[in-house]
């Protein structure tokens, strides 16, 4: 049994590893190509002629401000900026990552709570459904992220600064997928199931907790995965307006002003890792809840 499962996981992860390795090779090759012009200029200035290709490749992978840094440079920068530095240092990526993470999480929790509450209201009140739903759907087509800096500055002018305004952006972004998903999920019980609850003489309260709420769980987790990813994007973008506040968005911004490409890529990698970990945590919670509810493993 175990060997079968092992073989299966190899056939599943094998192709992913191959594709990832291929991407790594392409990356290193692209780094040579894209950094070559500048390296040639440097070498001519230094009076070096006929550099062997292997040396030349190594040179392109070790520039200070490369057009495209090689992966090991980015990883080195991440190592230097996290483990090798004190946590409280202004240059530490862990410090900036924590700023981003805290507003992401606060915004996500607020957004999910608000989204679930609104979805419950919409499902139980026809007037709310008819007046709110079209606007909620229409508002998803609006580039809300664009107003992020303005909200931060506007709230800053009335004295609300720090994590809260950024969390509000994240809340705003993560709230929509949750409302739409939860309305769908809370409506997913079929009329035959609702009728059964009726024959049991269940109160609206019991119908909600014993039928609608459990039935909405898959949609809740699906929309929470979207919501947490987009909260992180909201947190990063809302940091762009205040370079003094810190956060991964600020690292991106200062990196782009100073031409520090390695710094940009390192911040980008950390943001990607954060997103991946957060989505994975939501996925783990989903599996745990499914197991508790006795759902069949998919």
């Amino acid at each position: 049994m175990d060997t079968v499962r092992g073989a299966k996981s190899v056939t599943r992860t094998g192709p992913i590893i191959v594709v990832l390795l291929a991407m790594l090779v392409v990356w290193y090759a692209a780094a040579i190509g894209m950094n070559a012009p500048w390296q040639t200029t440097l070498n001519t200035r230094a009076g070096l002629a006929d550099v062997p290709f292997t040396d030349f490749a190594l040179q392109t992978w070790a520039q200070d401000r490369p057009v495209l840094p090689a992966p090991h440079q980015v990883l080195g920068e991440i190592w230097n900026a996290t483990v090798a530095l004190e946590l409280t240092s202004r240059r530490s990526l862990a410090y900036h990552g924590w700023i981003t993470l805290s507003s992401t999480l606060l915004g996500f929790v607020l957004g999910t709570t608000l989204g679930v509450a609104l979805a419950v209201f919409i499902v139980h009140n026809e007037a709310a459904n008819r007046s709110l739903m079209p606007w909620i759907i229409a508002s998803q087509t609006i580039p809300i992220l664009a107003i992020a800096p303005m909200v931060v500055v506007g709230l800053g002018s009335v004295g609300i600064t720090g994590t809260v305004p950024r969390a509000l952006i994240s809340m705003y972004l993560s709230f929509f997928p949750v409302v739409v998903g939860m309305v769908k999920g809370l409506r997913s019980p079929e009329s035959i199931q609702l009728d059964l609850m009726h024959t049991y003489d269940a109160s609206p309260w019991q119908t909600f907790w014993k039928l609608r709420w459990p039935a909405a769980m898959p949609m809740l987790f699906a929309s929470m995965k979207v919501g947490i990813a987009i909260s992180l994007v909201g947190a990063v973008v809302s940091e762009l307006s205040n370079a003094a506040g810190g956060g991964l968005g600020v690292r991106l911004l200062t990196g782009s002003y100073n031409g520090q490409t390695i710094q940009i890529w390192a911040a980008l990698f950390i943001a990607a890792a954060l997103a991946a970990i957060l989505v994975m945590i939501v996925g783990a919670a989903e599996r745990m809840v499914n197991a508790r509810m006795g759902a069949r493993p998919a």
């Binding site: 094998g14 991964l248 997103a275």
Partner: peptide, 21 residues
Amino acid sequence: AGLLPIGNFMSALPIIGIAPI
């Protein structure tokens, strides 16, 4: 089998961060 999980993963990443690059 190799690209699809990576594509799914990439969809969740803050790709917008490549803007400065």
